[in-house]
Design a protein around this nucleic acid. Structure first.
Lengths: 133, 133
DNA sequence: GCATGAATTGCAAATCATTTGCATATTTTT
DNA sequence: AAAAATATGCAAATGATTTGCAATTCATGC
């Protein structure tokens, strides 16, 4: 792995939330160019080191967000799902993917092979609910 | 509802799959402009008549896809989920949303209010599996 | 340890779905 | 039917992401 790709992966791992390319770029400093960040994110995802999803948010528009994939442990896929607060625009980690049974059911019912899925939730987080709207 | 909005909704209802703005435009003929299609789709979604999700596909790039929301029947939300075949690029209807329990669990566990979610699956459909790769 | 071909990077410019400004047309209200 | 409000069309802007290409760095064999 090149320096740029390592730096990108380290940033995703350190982040407590999904990051868009712009957020990675902000943190990566002079290490490399914006285009290299995009290419590194592609590389990481192709190689199973990162996950991504496209989310539209009133504040930030439509962007692809990336997370580092957890190292696999017993019974865990390393693939998380997220909640996005439409008021404070932060992400909340909902933990490891819970869709295995559902996916298996769809595969059996329709004779399809599901290779990946995108799932995220939006709404109001606990903090924003307390503060009223 | 204006003529453009009615025409857009009728197209979504007739379609057996999610449609992007370009696909709606193709079918809408001289009825209205491309910009009006975009605005009509926004209108339908804001008013609960359509659902949408953003999907990236090798063939068609990144686009937002819309479906008409079913009229509500007992125990059904009207909100469907879809499978997208990465070989033939078609959509398969997986039926009414099955996430109610999961959502309720997340809401209780994190004191959040989930207002919506995005879920879709990608992989290889039955037809493409038979045909080999 | 270094030459050599392959893969990666930086920069500038291109893409492309979607949005916006604004004048006109249509719809709704009174 | 006139006035006020809303929707539409057209042209141009936006903004995230991608691409071309020359220069640089990396991997590998000798």
């Amino acid at each position: 792995m090149t320096k740029a790709r390592q730096a990108t992966l380290a940033i995703l791992r350190d982040a407590q939330e999904p990051l868009c390319a712009a957020a990675v770029l902000e943190r990566i400093g002079v290490c490399c160019d914006q285009v290299t960040v995009y290419r590194s994110l592609h590389f990481l995802e192709e190689n199973g080191l990162a996950d991504s999803f496209i989310l539209h948010c009133a504040e930030h528009g439509t962007e692809r967000y990336y997370t580092a994939v957890d190292s696999l442990k017993d019974g865990y896929s390393g693939h998380h799902h997220w909640f996005h607060c439409e008021m404070c625009h932060r992400f909340l980690d909902l933990g490891d993917c819970q869709l295995h049974t559902l996916v298996a059911g769809y595969e059996a019912a329709h004779q399809i092979t599901v290779k990946s899925h995108t799932l995220y939730f939006t709404g109001i987080c606990a903090d924003c609910q307390i503060q009223g709207h």
